[in-house]
């Protein structure tokens, strides 16, 4: 326990960086993912094809390879940024197709009869979308989106392998420096991750139950 208390400032600095990576990548992934999802259901075939290829390509590439690209290959191509920003770009790109898929399945999950019913009682396009389709789609989208975000929190640890001194790196360094207290050091690191992932998991489960629509 003493190891954790003595090094609390280092833990907190790592935790801060983990939070930074998470928040920036989460916002960026939500934006890119939304654009990809809209492209995926757009009437323009070229956009649909592009979005599909992007989704399949990025989803099937390991995060390690994407972060390796940004840490080692991209600087060779003239994209020399701080490793932290490169990791943020990599995490955002990797997470975006998962966001897009969650959004798409939510919108597709609203039964067609709902829109038909809205139209047949005389609602226009924007009324149908705003009052009938979107409220139902959001309910079905938010819990899976939270799960995507939980995965993102855990994935920030991979950036630790590429020169970003976030929580995982701090844990590795402290474990190497305190060979007799490895278990305590790493349990400390795990606690910080659980501090974010468990509340988010409970929130997702709660919203899922609360918003479950029986059809």
């Amino acid at each position: 326990m003493n190891v954790i208390i003595d090094n609390l400032d280092r833990y907190l600095s790592g935790f801060g960086l983990t939070l930074q990576l998470f928040l920036v990548a989460a916002v960026a992934a939500l934006i890119i993912g939304t654009i990809i999802a809209v492209m995926r259901i757009s009437p323009v075939a070229a956009l649909r094809v592009f979005a599909t290829v992007y989704t399949e390509l990025v989803r099937n590439t390991p995060l390690t390879l994407i972060l390796f690209f940004f840490a080692f290959v991209a600087p060779q191509l003239g994209l020399g940024l701080d490793y932290k920003f490169l990791a943020m770009i990599g995490l955002s790109l990797y997470t975006s197709p998962f966001v897009a898929e969650a959004l798409r399945s939510g919108v597709n999950g609203v039964p067609i009869g709902q829109a038909e019913a809205a139209r047949s009682v005389g609602l226009g396009f924007s009324q149908t979308v705003v009052h009938v389709v979107l409220p139902q789609a959001v309910r079905m989208t938010v819990p899976p989106l939270i799960n995507v975000m939980i995965a993102l929190v855990k994935n920030t640890s991979v950036a630790g392998g590429f020169f970003v001194a976030e929580l995982f790196t701090i844990g590795k360094e402290l474990a190497n420096a305190n060979g007799n207290a490895v278990i305590a050091v790493l349990l400390g690191v795990a606690t910080f991750y659980l501090l974010i992932t468990i509340p988010l998991g409970i929130l997702a489960g709660f919203l899922e139950k609360k918003w479950m629509v029986s059809r």
């Binding site: 490895v182 690191v189 991750y193 998991g201």
Partner: peptide
């Protein structure tokens, strides 16, 4: 199970490797 699911796999690997 909550503990195992809530922490990064990478951390688990490091734990097994070092401990």
């Amino acid at each position: 199970l909550e503990f195992l699911r809530g922490m990064p796999v990478l951390l688990m690997m490091l734990f097994i490797l070092l401990a």
